[in-house]
Computed example of a mutant assay.
Amino acid sequence: MKLGLQLGYWGAGLPPHAAEMVVAADEAGYDAVFTAESWGSDVFTPLAWWGSATTRVRLGTAVAQLSARAPTATAMAALTLDHLSGGRVVLGLGVSGPQVVEGWYGAPFGRPLARTREYVSIIRDVLAREAPVTSAGPHYPLPYNGSGADGLGRPLRAITHPLRADLPIWLGAEGPRNVALAAEIADGWQAVYFTAALAEEYNTWLDDGFARAGARRSRADFEVAACATVTVTDDPAAEYDRHRPVIALYAGGMGAATKNFHADLFRRMGYGEVVDEIGARFREGRRAEAAAAVPDELVAQTTIIGDAATIRRRVAEWGDLGVTMLMVGARDAGQVREIATVLAEN
């Protein structure tokens, strides 16, 4: 199984040890490093800055939010970084959620599947550079001739020739229709919280997408990248407390009470009552209590924590369930190297 390093998005400031971890991943044989964005740090700048110190790893976004940029702007960023890195970019895209899209980007969230399909199509047209790029819309019409337009827009072709027309595009997705769409139109799927308990459902959703007319890839050449913190320890219970606040944030704070895709995912795992409790406490500002409500079992399902033998066994199990890349979170360069060493024995 391939290894990816997931750096995530920043908190209040520059995350410690990130630059050293990227170099360590490059040297330790990781396949890729990934950055993310929410409503603070952006996804491309850290990737370009830290990635400049690497020579081999792929540089991926996990994920670039659709509403942050027009599809042509995202294509420009990807093709630019692809040139600078010598063809090492993986473009991971995601719709985010209404709280961010409407609250931060000031755009409507509606019809996320249709928007994603149109967005990806435009990016592929930019990268193909076979003709001036046009789109009938309705979400990203090119040229734009709607309200307020001067009527002077014309179809354009990228001035810069993309290095790769087939630059890989992955989709971050959690629900059944989104995952199926990834299998239909993308080159890979980024799973935020993978769990063996839902693997059969995940594979059913993926197979639905692969079976659609015109599907871009098959199971044989499609990448499934699962995010998970991997910690080698003889005392797993001591590590669980580190993860409770993060799960509480995703379940209770990364969305509204009536629409939270992460909370929906945890419900599918069988934690509906737990999610209700976490959400209620989080929205009341009782974040420590929300974190305390996250059970050990939920942490254990969505992370890989244990001694070296346990780590190797669990990673092998995920591989048997269809995961082709493990996108690991780590705290420092030493942990990055330790994970690589332990899994090299698989």
Rank of each mutant, 00 (worst) to 15 (best):
L156R: 13
V133N: 08
D235N: 14
N178R: 13
E201N: 07
C227G: 07
R217K: 15
A199C: 09
G252T: 10
L249M: 12
A228Q: 13
P138G: 04
R124C: 01
G175S: 11
A220S: 14
A237R: 14
V192N: 13
A225D: 02
D235H: 14
D234M: 00
P162K: 03
D166N: 03
R216W: 02
P245V: 11
P245R: 13
L127Q: 12
T258M: 07
I169R: 12
A149L: 03
L163G: 03
H243F: 09
E130D: 14
Y140W: 09
S218V: 01
A257K: 10
I122Y: 12
A158V: 02
V246F: 14
D234S: 12
A248P: 01
F194N: 04
V120I: 08
E223T: 14
N145F: 05
A158P: 12
R177I: 05
I122F: 10
S121I: 00
A128P: 09
D208Q: 15
G255W: 04
D208V: 08
F194R: 10
L249Y: 15
S135C: 14
V120N: 08
G153A: 11
E239T: 08
G214R: 10
T231M: 11
D221A: 10
R219S: 11
A197F: 06
L206I: 04
P162E: 09
A225I: 09
G148I: 03
A199F: 08
D234Q: 09
R212W: 07
P138T: 01
G209Q: 05
P132A: 13
N178Q: 15
V126S: 02
H139P: 00
L249F: 15
R124D: 05
P162L: 09
F194Y: 15
G209F: 02
E130C: 11
Y250A: 04
P236F: 00
Y193H: 11
T231W: 06
L127K: 07
A251N: 02
P162F: 06
T204R: 14
Q190A: 14
D207I: 08
G188N: 03
G146W: 02
A257D: 06
G175F: 07
A158C: 03
T195G: 15
L249A: 12
N203D: 11
